[in-house]
Design a protein around this nucleic acid. Structure first.
Lengths: 103, 103
DNA sequence: TTAAAATATTAGAATAGTATTATAAATATC
DNA sequence: GATATTTATAATACTATTCTAATATTTTAA
């Protein structure tokens, strides 16, 4: 009576887990993308607000947003002429809090 | 009466934090390195044991170990002719557990 | 001191990630 | 429709990462 297919297998033996998780971490493993995630941790923000607040060139931010969006970390919503991004993957919020907490 | 220098500043505004954290994540953001960390999560292991258990070429593992070691994630101890690695950075254990916990 | 075992390093080619610049697309306003 | 604003995409040059194969280093034991 197995309730899960991979019961008893350690996570590090699950190649799918390793690849997916590495992809997730890779997406976060850049100062600017981490900055974006940190900025979005307090809520949804529009693109212009993001690149102005973070003091980064607009196309650069747009590219980083697309990395985060394509890996399912961010979601977005068009609101008229502006586009607003938010953190979609709850695990990422947890991870970010984990990384920012003082020891 | 400030007890910390950077009080009141959000973490995402701290460029040093962003760079350090991105480096940490980058070191973990590879399937084989994640696999090594997962294997070491249960305790110290010697190099041969690592590359045999993980079914990876010896020089490859050695290179990955050096990445993890250089970034302070792993520590090691020579014991006679063999070298044993262990997880030195406690944050990484927390991160790994965070990543492996089921939702 | 030589040989074997364990681990590390190096060199090279292939691939991937990045910033910058320029341009395109979508929407809103006039 | 013309124009301004916002965001995305493309092209390029540059740098970094990765794997593989070969070789070096360290330790132990014969």
């Amino acid at each position: 009576m197995e309730t899960h297919a991979k019961e008893g297998i350690e996570k590090w033996q699950d190649e799918q887990f390793l690849e997916d998780t590495a992809e997730l971490l890779k997406a976060l493993a850049h100062p600017s993308r981490l900055k974006i995630v940190g900025f979005l941790a307090s809520g949804k923000k529009c693109v212009k607000h993001i690149w102005e607040a973070l003091d980064l060139p607009q196309p650069n931010v747009s590219q980083h947003l697309s990395v985060l969006r394509n890996r399912g970390i961010l979601g977005y919503k068009r609101e008229g002429s502006i586009v607003c991004y938010y953190i979609k993957d709850k695990r990422v919020l947890e991870l970010y809090r984990n990384l920012t907490q003082e020891d």
